[in-house]
Design a protein around this nucleic acid. Sequence first.
DNA 1: TCTGGGGTCCTAGGACCC
DNA 2: TCTGGGGTCCTAGGACCC
Length: 404
Amino acid sequence: MEKQILHVDVNNAFLSWTAVEMLKQGNQIDIRDIPAIIGGDESKRSGIVLAKSMKAKECGIKTADTIYQARIKCPNLQIFPSNFKIYRKYSNELYNLLLEYTDKIERFSIDECFLDMTNYLRGDTLLNKGYEINKRVEKELGFTVNVGVANNKLLAKMASDFTKPNKVHTLWKEEIPQKMWTLPISELFMLGKKTVPKLLNMQIKTIGDLAKTEKSKLEKKFGKHGVLMWEYANGIDNTEVKYLPEKPKCVGNSVTLPKNISDINKLEEIVLTISEQVAYRLRKEKLYANTVNVQLRTKNFEDTSHQKKLPEVTNTTKQIYLTAKELLHEMYRKGQEIRLVGVRVDNLVESKENQISLFDENKDEKQEKLDKVIDTLRSKYGYDSVTRATKMDVEEIVKLKKEE
DNA sequence: TCTGGGGTCCTAGGACCC
DNA sequence: TCTGGGGTCCTAGGACCC
């Protein structure tokens, strides 16, 4: 039996949600009706476009443009900051509404869900359910969604992307030639800016061209990715809607520094601050890490990363920091101007039980107790209620910038 | 005043083992 | 004398997504 899949995608999510929130706060104008974007903070050198209104899109503004570019494209642009707390709130409102239709919902991202409706149609059609969800979200939640209607996840996702906003589109098997094969290859899910030029070089311009290309030829050139793109171009996707919550496979944080840094001592302090955050999140997930990874980005956008497998799993701030510090020293070349620092833990496991330890006693016990005290304080009074004396906090970095 | 931050998955090469 | 062939684990880097 064919699967019955819906893909629900919030239109201009961050901007729409900000608009709804502002209206709720009594704001007179709806920022969806003017040239507006949600953007990062240029003074923190994270000035990129995260979401745009239709009017801003008409100016040619694209997601991930720099705000600098966006302002040139549209001089009377209005810029609003992001607020992930609000986004999570509206994302949850959407999820709760969708739960009335099926409990098989995969939260693909903060603003996208896949619904497996296969056993939940109750005599109705999938398309009708799609329309109903589209109308109800607008009426009850105040923002709009696109809904893709199909027999697998890939086709549902492609369908929801057709024309926006506030639309419902089907993409049945027999519609693939007219609706999907006519599109340029850049529109196909999982074809990014590195692969598209390579395909164009092979005279593969549309998704239809790709679908008709010999699968073995693509496999030879692109490996597994080649097989995947061929299958997607032909509308083939047998993956299930993953509705059960999954543990993360890695946990990481990174910061773009307000100013490039060449001082290894300052970099160490930043690595400490980030290690602390990462370890805290790891413990909140009740996970242990096998591997620590440090990433550096220079002022020229050259990225390097080094990683190290630990002798035994850990979730203590101390272990993660000490390893990260070691990696930092291993990587950092004197004089390099560092723009971004990141720390990540990988190969996460749920417990340290099945670890073969040579000793019976737990030598991390003291650290674990200390971490626990701090975690409790933070969950009660907020993350910043506990700070380190050596920590280079935001104020200090900003001060450093002003001295310039 | 150019260029975020959070992820997942894959690949290629080296080390090491039998 | 002219150099196997598997397999696993680890690391660095890259591609893609939202």
